[in-house]
């Protein structure tokens, strides 16, 4: 039984005895504090995660300097612009409402994404597209078939990384820098090695659609894990026979930013070491030691 289960059981015991609030145990105070913080933090966190999808975009449209393509995702906080005249259709979450942005003369700047404030964007005609109209239009259009890029990337295994856990969502993207698009499962084994079976998460990896690689990971707690790619086989995960195992440090949203910054600095040093001719196994040892040291910080907290 893990700590969370034990806590939950203890909580139920207190509740039955009717002294949930009268007993001022430290964990109750922590839980209350966390709940209060959660009330304020959770809406902000979920708001940050709202992403919208590009249904179609004429050539001039871009967001944060990147040209928009069909299927891309953009965040509510992003700002769009169009340097030439053209239309953009977004599917706005969470209602999945279709919205048309039409830049008539070009040079449309700082266009907000799926804004609900009603604030007008200068030079842009913005209007929702009715479901009926969309249905009729879809009769005369067809779903485009995405082309394939027939080249071998230099590899396909996960890399060592620090991952953000936003329960129950785990952001796998940083560990999948070299992994090709596709449907995968990943085995997360606790480190140091334990007897418990590894947790499994699955992901339809498409960096053009979701560069964060957000996957549902219930029951995964912050900590250090071995990370192995595999193929979903029915209900199980078949690890790649030749796949290399990476190490990932899973950090909660609160501590992720600082840990990630430190990790990037340390992995740059490891990269320098590799360039200077050090063997791969030696470099991997350095990387893993750095991740283990960062994991210690989480444990101390």
């Amino acid at each position: 039984m893990n700590n969370m289960d034990a806590n939950a059981q203890a909580s139920r015991g207190h509740w039955r005895r009717g002294n949930f609030l009268t007993r001022r145990t430290p964990w109750v105070r922590h839980a209350l504090g966390a709940a209060l913080v959660g009330c304020f933090v959770q809406p902000a966190a979920s708001q940050q995660q709202i992403v919208h999808r590009v249904v179609s975009a004429d050539s001039g449209w871009q967001a944060n300097g990147n040209r928009l393509l069909r299927g891309m995702q953009i965040r509510e906080t992003d700002l769009m612009s169009a340097d030439t005249a053209g239309d953009l259709i977004l599917e706005c979450s969470p209602q999945n409402e279709l919205r048309l942005y039409s830049c008539a003369k070009g040079a449309c700047k700082k266009v907000s994404v799926c804004s609900t404030s009603g604030q007008a964007n200068p030079g842009v005609v913005e209007r929702p597209i009715g479901k009926l109209m969309w249905s009729l239009t879809s009769l005369l259009t067809r779903e485009p078939r995405q082309p394939v890029l027939a080249a071998a990337r230099a590899g396909g295994d996960p890399n060592d990384a620090v991952l953000r856990l936003d329960p129950p969502r785990l952001h796998l993207g940083p560990a999948l820098t070299r992994v090709l698009e596709g449907r995968y499962c990943f085995l997360l084994g606790g480190l140091p090695s334990s007897s418990t079976s590894p947790a499994t998460v699955t992901l339809d990896w498409d960096r053009a659609v979701d560069s964060e690689g957000v996957s549902q990971a219930t029951g995964v707690a912050p900590g250090l894990y071995s990370f192995q790619k595999g193929t979903p086989m029915g209900g199980s995960c078949q690890a790649d026979a030749d796949g290399a195992t990476a190490w990932v440090l899973i950090a909660g949203s609160d501590g992720f930013a600082s840990l990630d910054t430190i990790w990037k600095e340390q992995s740059a040093i490891a990269a320098d070491l590799e360039r200077s001719g050090a063997s791969r196994s030696a470099v991997a040892t350095v990387r893993h030691a750095a991740l283990a040291a960062l994991a210690e910080r989480i444990t101390r907290r």
Binding site: S56, L69, R70, G71, L139, L140, T141, R142, E143, P144, R145, Q146, P147, L149, A151, R153, A208
Partner: peptide, 14 residues
Amino acid sequence: AASAQSSTEAVGFF
């Protein structure tokens, strides 16, 4: 071979 992000813009029936 160069890497790329790619998409397809579908043409309507007419």
